[in-house]
């Protein structure tokens, strides 16, 4: 190293803190929501506008870090002049929009969407969906008793454009055996509401690995690897970012799944502590979920600029080296 004084002394402080170029000021538009006048940037969605005035709009397929796919339709609102309801999560505001978020049409659609999901999907580990269901008075039992679960692989083999006509008076569901093909996480598609979030997180919105995609069509549409091959044969790199965005527990850490199977999963006994990943130098925030002094799963907060909620296999699963065992037991 030369003896250039620069290498000995820190450089002088800049006159002004360096800042990012300021984005162009976006014009604001005036709209009304449930009779209340609101002004929001013209880049805002109806959902943004609702949230800005504290109107709690249910969402299932929406996540701040993902591109809206507007498929669950639980966020629909009524816009004056529109023939159909519109999805709040993706529709941009337009000047003069008059929006109803709680009209009878809106309430009916939300209730029905939740009934459709409740009658076809196991929502037992989807607290948000259950809360919405009770909020909108959804009664999933109206469609009859659930049909028996499909055999392993049977739903994955269904061909588009064909289904067996209803032979019984039972309601069709997506029930099927849980897929366990690796030690890190399980896929229980009986709990899948097909919100596309995992596909987006595996794809261009975060991981860009494209190990999974939506396959099949209609009610037989499903999340699948190519040809339904097991994850270890697929492109999966076990970042677990799909688990991070799954709203229903269909994708679950094996550690959580095993504890639940044993009846030992107890969120009341758990703590959640944010720290920084011990591996490479990127500095990802890890939220450690700890039960009985054991890390039982690792998540990452969405609002951190470093990760946007995403991790890699080491950060998500590589904590085993500190699990020396419970000191109370040894």
């Amino acid at each position: 190293m030369s003896d250039d004084s620069l290498w000995f002394r820190p450089p002088p402080r800049p006159s002004h803190p360096p800042i990012a170029p300021t984005p162009v000021e976006t014009p604001r538009v005036e709209i009304s929501i449930d009779g209340q006048a609101v002004a929001v940037p013209d880049t805002a969605t109806i959902l943004d506008a609702c949230r800005s005035i504290g109107i709690d709009t249910p969402t299932l397929c929406y996540l701040e870090t993902l591109t809206p796919v507007n498929v669950c339709r639980v966020c629909v609102v009524e816009v004056k002049g529109s023939r159909t309801l519109v999805p709040a999560c993706s529709r941009r505001v337009e000047p003069g929009m008059e929006i109803q978020t709680n009209s009878p049409r809106v309430q009916l659609s939300r209730k029905m969407v939740l009934e459709f999901l409740g009658s076809s999907v196991d929502l037992s580990t989807a607290p948000t969906a259950l809360e919405y269901s009770s909020r909108y008075g959804a009664n999933a039992g109206r469609y009859g008793p659930a049909k028996e679960a499909a055999l392993a692989g049977e739903r994955d083999a269904r061909e588009p454009g064909h289904h067996h006509p209803p032979g019984s008076l039972h309601a069709e569901t997506v029930a099927q055996p849980v897929k366990i093909d690796n030690n890190l996480y399980v896929r229980d598609y009986s709990k899948c509401i097909l919100c596309y979030k995992c596909v987006e997180a595996c794809g261009t919105d975060a991981q860009n690995t494209f190990a999974i995609a939506v396959a099949g069509r209609g009610f037989d549409a499903r999340i699948s690897t190519e040809d339904n091959i097991p994850l270890p044969d697929s492109a999966c790199v076990y970042c677990g970012n799909c688990i991070g965005v799954c709203p229903t527990g269909a994708l679950m850490f094996k550690s959580e799944y095993d504890l639940r199977q044993r009846g030992e999963w107890d969120e009341a006994r758990q703590t959640k502590t944010d720290t920084i990943c011990p591996y490479c130098g990127v500095g990802c925030t890890l939220s450690l979920h700890v039960q009985d002094n054991q890390i039982v799963k690792v998540t990452s907060p969405l609002d951190v600029e470093v990760t946007h909620g995403n991790l890699c296999i080491k950060g998500r699963f590589g904590y085993g080296f500190v699990q020396g065992g419970d000191p109370d037991k040894e």
Binding site: F116, G144, L169, R217, G218, A221
Partner: peptide, 28 residues
């Protein structure tokens, strides 16, 4: 009803499940 169930792309909940529930109800 079977036609719409078969031809639904499966993307949105109202159509994906609604076409099934409609067919089941008609069947009943």
């Amino acid at each position: 009803a079977a036609f719409f169930r078969d031809e639904s792309c499966g993307q949105c909940v109202p159509c994906r499940v609604g076409t099934v529930r409609q067919e089941e109800l008609l069947h009943r």
